[in-house]
Simulated scan of single mutants.
Amino acid sequence: MNKETTITRGQLFLLILKFEIGVDILSLPYRIHLISKGGGWISVFLGGFLIQLVILLCWLLMRRFPSSSIYDIVTLITGKWIGKLLIIAYVGYFLLMGTSVLVNAYSVINRWMLQDTPRWAILALFLFSSIYLVRQKLRIIARVLVLISFLVLPMMVLISYGLKEVNLLYLLPLTEAGWPNIISGSTETLMAMFGFEFFLVVFPMVEGSSGGKLKSVALASAVVVVLYAFTVFICSTAFSPQQLDLMPEPVIYLLRSIPLGTMDRADFLFLPIWLISIFGAICGYYYTASYGISYFFKQKHHKKAVPYVVIASCIIAYLPQQKEKLELISTIANRSAYFFLMILPLLLLVLSYIMKRKEKMI
């Protein structure tokens, strides 16, 4: 591969870091609180451990085919016809995940920033900007998204201002919800950290050894776990349990309550930064879906498929008019992730051993 179609391990690290910190950073403290109470930060670390196991599982599969993406692998293991069905399924999954992020982003924008702006206008902004970026070569996309990934730093700096409001007594007793609920709450972290699956497609395009690629993805996920745990800790100690019960997006409420110098509303600074960051996560899913379509039709470049993917995503995000139907998109996406990131990779890995199919390891 030439340099324009590859990325470095450092770029992979920053991309995974960016993709895993998405819309859920706003609502994760609330969702975990409902299940784990004061032990929410423990649930985050447990979820981080689970995500590392999922990453390891996917890497064990990719390591056996170091020069192949997940689209190549399903065909090599299951054959031509089943492989084509699985390629379509993975394209649908990536499209659905991108749409889920888009829908959740729109909901936040509509509630907190642009209440009177029509949905079609907001979606159109995502549509045109996404098509422009995702049509580029992988290295160009990576350079733009790497710049966006650095926005995570000011986001966390703003959240850290919540340390002024910390009251550790709000966490006690830590095991109030009981260990079964604390363990159950870890699934919320697991769902919040979906985004690492980007490496299932770009694995052969990353420079370096298979082990080095694993280190980049695992380290990025570990950093995200620490950032999520910090965010949950801040929100759980800045607000009482009774207050958190009423705050679906406690991070925004936290920033609204903390004056930042001459700015009374720090959330006005946080949300635009967050919005740019979310744009990067959406583009990552659009790229993987477009790459799958180009692979299916044996095209040399993915750019022809990009407009179809982005337009389809925006149409799906626009059609539901009720809140329940919008939430249904996220529910279906999150549940399908268990199949495409855990069950199916495990089955493919087992089949690769049974059928003794692999490439020369590097």
Rank of each mutant, 00 (worst) to 15 (best):
S67K: 15
R63W: 12
Y106K: 00
Y93E: 05
L125S: 08
S69A: 07
S107N: 12
L125P: 07
V74P: 02
F94Q: 05
N110P: 10
M113I: 08
S130Y: 07
P66Q: 01
I122F: 05
V101C: 12
F126D: 00
R63H: 13
L86A: 06
Y106C: 00
N110K: 13
L96D: 06
N104C: 08
F65L: 04
S68F: 13
L96H: 02
P118S: 06
T78R: 14
T99A: 05
S130A: 14
F128T: 02
N104R: 06
L85R: 13
S68C: 13
Q115W: 15
L76C: 08
R63M: 10
I82L: 14
S67I: 14
Q115M: 15
R63L: 09
I87D: 00
L95K: 07
G98S: 05
I88V: 13
S107G: 10
I77T: 02
Y93G: 04
P118E: 08
N110I: 05
P66R: 00
I73R: 00
R119M: 09
T78G: 12
S107T: 11
T117N: 12
L127H: 01
V103A: 09
N104E: 10
V101S: 09
R63Y: 11
T75Q: 12
Y106D: 01
F126N: 00
G83E: 03
Y90W: 08
Y90A: 05
I109K: 01
S129A: 14
I70F: 03
K84W: 15
L114K: 09
A121L: 15
S100E: 13
A89D: 12
R111N: 12
A105Q: 05
F94I: 05
L114P: 11
I82D: 10
R64N: 10
P66V: 02
W81G: 04
V91W: 05
T99I: 06
V91S: 07
L86R: 04
R64F: 03
G98Q: 02
Y106Q: 00
K80C: 04
